[in-house]
Amino acid sequence: MMFKNFFSTILLGLALSIGLFFGVGQPSIAAAPSSAFMVGVKLAAVAKVSPKGELEVDRFLTSMPSGYYTIANVEGLKKLLEDPQTVLVDVREPSEYRSGHIPNAINIPLRTLTHNLDKIVGDRPVVLYCSSGYRSAMGVMTLHLLGYENVQGFPPSFAGWQAAGEAIASK
């Protein structure tokens, strides 16, 4: 029962984060896509935050190491990419990926991440990135909740890679 409450709380947080993400820059929450908003509403109706649930979330959050599974700079990512076993995942939408991406990255949009777990190898380093770091952080959290301990995010993101003057690939 405790796991169910914990999982419901996490799903609620993800749904609300997604709703907030799509609502950023919009005149009101009514402008957010109705499906994302309705998912949040449905989860809010079933997920009651209990003291045990709060305790489990607190345990999860305090178990995160310093740096929260991140590669802090372009040099760190380049060093990790020297290992040919590293899987680099661009979690942006396909149109964003096609307009330019970090070389050798595969495209798995965040919204399809759980449908593509077969591409997330459990025994090799996996790095997620997006445009600004927001979607990759959500992806890292999701994969860690699913038991993947080999996943890191690259918060400097594609914008940081590009600003450093690194090579950009396109398809």
Rank of each mutant, 00 (worst) to 15 (best):
M38F: 13
K79H: 14
A137V: 02
F6H: 06
S136M: 00
A32T: 15
H115E: 07
V91S: 13
D90Y: 01
G165L: 02
R111I: 13
V127T: 04
P155H: 06
D83N: 14
S63W: 12
K52S: 04
N116S: 04
V126D: 05
A36N: 05
R135N: 05
C130R: 06
K119R: 02
R124E: 14
P27T: 04
I108P: 00
Y68T: 15
M1E: 09
A137C: 10
E96L: 07
I71C: 10
L113I: 13
V140F: 04
K4S: 10
S132V: 14
Y69M: 13
L43V: 15
Q162Y: 08
L146A: 00
W161G: 03
L12F: 08
K78D: 08
P94Q: 06
H115D: 11
E75T: 15
R111L: 08
G19F: 07
D58P: 05
F3V: 15
M138A: 00
G147S: 00
V87G: 00
S17G: 15
Q26H: 07
P33R: 02
N104D: 10
G147E: 12
I106W: 07
C130Q: 03
L117H: 01
P94E: 10
V46T: 14
G76D: 03
I108R: 07
T70K: 08
R124N: 11
P33K: 10
T9Q: 14
L55V: 15
V57P: 05
F3W: 10
V46F: 08
I102K: 04
L11K: 14
D58Q: 03
I18W: 03
K42Q: 14
P109H: 09
V121A: 00
I29R: 08
V87Y: 03
V57Q: 07
T70C: 11
T86Y: 04
P109Y: 10
N104F: 09
P51G: 02
G67Q: 04
A167L: 08
L143H: 00
P65Y: 12
F158S: 04
K4Q: 04
R111C: 03
V87F: 07
G147T: 02
H115M: 05
R92I: 11
M1D: 11
P156C: 01
A159F: 05
L143K: 01
S136C: 15
N116I: 06
V39D: 02
E166R: 08
I108T: 02
G53H: 01
H144S: 05
D90L: 02
G13T: 13
N5Y: 08
